[in-house]
């Protein structure tokens, strides 16, 4: 479903701020894979995700989604393959537009925007049904501006928007990091349900080791722009926090205890 071949990316090349963010990343995701990605700050987790989404072009390497080489495609053209949820709840939705308008925009991802009416009556019913599944009462507030919603509600809405048009790959960029623990758990539960029901292939970056272990069928650990550990299936199911901490110390040559973020 997704293939990354030897991806390199350096930010601010030739300056004092030069940073090699991706250092020869190769990765293959199969259809239906739900991968969780962990690593310390600056390991390149979100950078991989942005490389896939096409936020900027990579320096070298190729990105293939569902058999199609998208390396040269701009962000908005890759969008038809991708569903995305961002870390900042403000990023994924248009605050000044209505809930139903946001959904209608997402429904047309990958389609030409024509002069037909932006949201039909039939669609509205469909959205009402789908909002009901989120169990947040949003189905009764369809014409409310998204700016009035809480962070958790916005993330849940973004999640629905990302999957309204079934994506080849769902990209989750620490999408619960900005939420309080209780809301984060609820959004994660919704995430699991949506991925399961739609049989999605997903790529979830997280700061939280427990979440990384508890969710998905595969786990990747990154360090300094490289994948240092990749585990799937039964082996992943048996993984414990201690295993991961030991693994990190062994593979990165430094102790994970020094990185508070990863223990969060």
């Amino acid at each position: 479903m997704l293939e990354l071949n030897n991806i390199y990316k350096t930010f601010n090349p030739g300056t004092v701020n030069e940073k090699r963010a991706l250092n020869g990343i190769s990765l293959k995701l199969n259809e239906g894979d739900f991968v969780t990605v962990i690593g310390s700050n600056g390991a390149g987790k979100s950078t991989v995700l942005n490389a896939i989404a096409g936020v900027w072009p990579v320096d070298s390497g190729s990105i293939i989604i569902d058999g199609q080489d998208v390396t040269g495609l701009p962000e908005y053209k890759r969008a038809k393959f991708l569903g995305r949820v961002f870390q900042d709840p403000m990023t994924g939705t248009a605050a000044t537009m209505e809930i139903q308008e946001n959904l209608a925009l997402a429904k047309r991802r990958g389609a030409r925007r024509t002069l037909r009416v932006g949201i039909t009556k039939k669609e509205q019913e469909e959205y009402r049904e789908q909002l009901r599944t989120l169990d947040l009462g949003l189905e009764d507030r369809m014409t409310a501006k998204v700016g009035l919603l809480s962070g958790g509600q916005r993330q849940a809405l973004t999640l629905l928007m990302a999957t309204l048009q079934k994506p080849k790959l769902l990209l989750l960029d620490e999408h619960t990091a900005a939420l309080d623990p209780k809301t984060a758990e609820k959004v994660l539960k919704t995430t699991d349900a949506i991925i399961r029901e739609n049989h999605l292939t997903a790529f979830m970056v997280t700061h939280n080791m427990k979440d990384a272990i508890a969710h998905g069928n595969r786990l990747i650990m990154m360090n300094e722009g490289k994948i240092i550990f990749d585990v799937a299936g039964e082996e992943k199911k048996k993984l414990t926090m201690k295993d991961l901490l030991d693994k990190f110390a062994e593979l990165s040559g430094s102790s994970i205890q020094s990185d508070k973020a990863l223990l969060a």
């Binding site: 989404a53 962000e75 908005y76 053209k77 969008a79 038809k80 991708l82 995305r84 961002f86 403000m90 990023t91 994924g92 939705t93 248009a94 605050a95 000044t96 537009m97 308008e101 209608a104 925009l105 997402a106 047309r108 991802r109 990958g110 389609a111 925007r113 024509t114 002069l115 037909r116 009416v117 932006g118 949201i119 928007m161």
Partner: peptide
């Protein structure tokens, strides 16, 4: 009429949130 069409809505989205617009396939 125009700002109620698909194209018009995508223009409003572009003004409201460019990141979101691009993620939804809109050529901002």
């Amino acid at each position: 009429w125009f700002f109620g069409t698909e194209l018009g809505c995508s223009l409003r989205a572009t003004g409201a949130n460019q990141n979101m617009s691009r993620a939804q396939g809109i050529n901002t």
